[in-house]
Design a binder for these strands. Structure first.
Lengths: 243, 243
DNA sequence: CGCACCATTGACGTGGTTCAACCTTGGTGG
DNA sequence: CCACCAAGGTTGAACCACGTCAATGGTGCG
């Protein structure tokens, strides 16, 4: 966060798209007012680095729209994504001075930011917000652990299918067949899955040629039969109750 | 937790070995009294299953001594460890009815348990404890994310070296050369690392034959030169300032 | 002593990486 | 308007790290 030019756009929170899912989800009106007074928005363009590993961390906040990635890297250049930030997800630790991960905008992305010290104070004074923060952290921990199964035990095909299924479930504005725009480049997908670009690409063409998915350009995917995709993903919970 | 026979050993918390690292680390005396009144101890033998995935979760608590593992498994039997519980680590979600992971005793292990509902109440009423809980959750999230790099990007040799180095750092009662007793079977190590037993075994013998470590039986390991081991681990932060 | 259980070792197959070439697509300027 | 270029994506061939399968070795307990 080298250049700090915050847009001070103090519209109320009530129209906020993440109002009911983010850190503020369970806030009482007066708590919301306080958060509202602290907040500021800032947008980054796709590809821009938001935070470097180890950088000073003056802000924490939530993704309002778009998508960003958390990554860690080894000295020899190997990179692993360790978090995928979608709208309502929270970034930053109130009790840490520096960022533990590199944060990069995957698409154009807008954050709702709070000064770290102010947010920390708020947290201590309003148990409501602290509880919500705890709940979200525990959910993220569960998500990280699910991800560990993928990284440790799944095959390349299962990994790719799992990612596509997750994106379809989260991003698809429903409808049959399910359709979504991938918020990630092949590079970012590989980083997410612990694979190389080439393997991701091969698995996607394989899934396409076998009719499990269809593609519109490099980013658009359609899936007529989600349970087929889930079977490929290895999470065989496709036992959708057939009404 | 099929059979519930709690030892009601209400010794005070002041002599507790995890008093200053566990959930109770930052408690004021009266908070500690309350926790003390709620707690009970229970011990499991190495190999016993403590909780099945999806089972009812009447208790939450901390590891007092010994070691337990958190694992998730796929329907076809593939298993991935997602958490390693050492003394002072916390298990269970106050806000969930069922266990998300299987918990197994790796060694004989003793827990300090609280009834989930009671603990939840305590959490809401004492921000101190909630804050500590949040801090511990965030630490675990960071640990899970470090683990993801290992699973996604490290080679078998690096994985094994990393695990051994971690155990040596945590368990070794210091002294040169560093020595520790592995709390995990080869099976559990493989599960932790996303490898097979055979690969773990081969890498350990390789490290031994190359003189990076020595072994006393299957469980005892000694390392004369930790920085050599860290080099093998790929976390090249061995730049120990040479005083 | 002998049986289980865990760990080691070996031979072999394969899924995923590596390296390299080629293709697509969208943007830019002549 | 189209030629060109850069960036991202795909495809192919060869290699190798790790998994698989199977046999052997060690160790502690009844």
């Amino acid at each position: 966060m080298t250049r700090i030019d915050l847009q001070i756009a103090k519209s109320g929170c009530s129209a906020c798209p993440i109002r009911h899912r983010a850190i503020c989800a369970t806030c009482e009106p007066e708590e919301l007012d306080r958060l509202s007074g602290m907040k500021s928005y800032r947008t980054w363009k796709a590809g821009e680095t938001i935070l470097l590993e180890g950088a000073q961390l003056p802000f924490v906040g939530s993704v309002v729209s778009g998508c960003a990635t958390l990554t860690r890297s080894m000295e020899d250049g190997r990179i692993q994504m360790v978090g995928l930030l979608l709208p309502s997800d929270f970034v930053g630790r109130h009790d840490r001075e520096t960022a533990a991960y590199e944060v990069v905008a995957a698409t154009d992305v807008t954050f709702c930011l709070f000064k770290r010290a102010e947010f920390r104070q708020m947290l201590v004074e309003t148990p409501h917000v602290m509880e919500r923060m705890l709940q979200m952290s525990l959910d993220e921990l569960d998500a990280a652990r699910d991800w560990m199964i993928l990284l440790g035990r799944k095959t390349a095909r299962e990994k790719v299918a799992t990612l596509l299924a997750n994106i379809l479930r989260r991003a698809a504005s429903s409808g049959h067949p399910l359709r979504a725009e991938l918020p990630l480049t092949r590079d970012a997908m590989a980083s997410y899955l612990g694979l190389t670009i080439e393997t991701v690409s091969r698995q996607m063409t394989a899934l396409r040629k076998e009719g499990v998915i269809e593609m519109q350009g490099h980013r658009g995917i359609t899936c007529a039969d989600l349970s087929a995709l889930l079977t490929e993903a290895g999470d065989d919970e496709d036992g959708l109750p057939l009404a």
